[in-house]
Simulated scan of single mutants.
Amino acid sequence: MPAKVVLHLPQRFRDRLDRRRGPLLYEEILSVITRFGGEVVLAPQLKRADYKMVSAEDLHIVENGRIQRPAVLNAATAYLDGFFHVDPRGIQAESSIGMRLYKPKRIDPGVAADYFDLLRARFVTPRLSRYRQARDHAQLPEGCIAVFLQGPAPQRLMQAACGYDEMLIGVCAGAGGRPVVAKPHPLDPESGQAAISAARAAGYEVIATEANIHDVLEACALTVSVNSAASIEGLLHEKPGVLFGWSDFHHFFPTASRPGEFAALAERVLAAPPDAAKALYWYFSQCLDAKSPDFAPRLLAIFAKAGFDAVRLGLNPPPGQ
């Protein structure tokens, strides 16, 4: 009997798929597999206690998974809307990309520049980001340091080098006279405001903003986050960054292990910023782009590498034949 593709999703995702209304990645997986005669099963999200009970007879795809087991792939948005991780190691900060070598000299600068222009047209020109952004244009201090405060996940997953209040105070202390702008996460403004209040209580002038992320990135000289998508988006504006935690795009930015390291790292990356076009081309060429014409063959190549090729999945005719 052919293996099935089992999608382990939250109930709200399954409800949307039943109506063929997304989410985009799983809608595309469902379309690709069923188009060639395979079977897709919608299943509840896996709990940690269920990991060892997963059958290796079928291919399991787990939304926001952190499971490293045979026959399991972990899936989530890869920072920019429409790009996805489908990865045996993990998602976002824990994806396999973090373990790979980045060799910018091997990347064709013309190819990277063309890709960069396409990404800017897709995200910067329409001022789009993963989360809803202010529509009005905002004026922010030119050359500021932009600190992007995240939700609880980096702390909970032990990906952060320190707390957000310590990070923000460390940035203010090492800002070298540059204004510091802090943007709380749209889904967790309370913790961001708490960090801003702590920095102000320590005597630092922090400019809090809810401006559209592209206005912030256009104005700033440098981004700071634990491991936020905002730092990747900063590359769309050719802005370097400093990280304060574990990420899978550490190849492009220095990472601080404690707040006191910020000043030296900021000076270093401002003096020698990464090639934004090459960085973005290298990173996102290793993700799945649901809007790309090569989505289906790339998805099936990932499945085959996990041990589930077209024959094992009962796809007829196998794609490409």
Rank of each mutant, 00 (worst) to 15 (best):
A3I: 09
V5W: 07
F13T: 03
R16F: 03
R19G: 08
R20H: 12
L24A: 14
L25Y: 01
E27Q: 13
L30Y: 10
S31P: 02
T34E: 13
P44K: 03
R48S: 09
Y51S: 00
M53T: 11
A56W: 07
E57W: 00
H60D: 01
G65I: 05
A78N: 05
F83M: 13
F84L: 09
I91V: 15
Q92M: 10
A93V: 13
A93W: 05
S95H: 00
R100G: 11
P104L: 12
R106M: 11
D108K: 13
L119A: 01
T125C: 07
R127Y: 14
S129H: 09
P141F: 08
G151K: 06
Q159P: 08
A160L: 06
G163P: 00
I169P: 02
G174M: 03
V181Y: 06
H185V: 02
E190W: 04
Q193D: 11
A195N: 11
I196F: 05
V206Q: 14
E210K: 13
A211C: 12
H214T: 14
N227H: 07
N227W: 00
S228C: 15
G234W: 11
L235G: 03
H237E: 09
G241F: 04
H251Y: 15
R258L: 14
F262H: 06
A266M: 08
A266P: 14
Y281L: 06
Y283E: 03
Q286K: 09
D289C: 04
A290T: 13
F295E: 11
P297F: 06
R298P: 03
A310C: 10
G314A: 05
G314F: 11
L315F: 12
N316M: 04
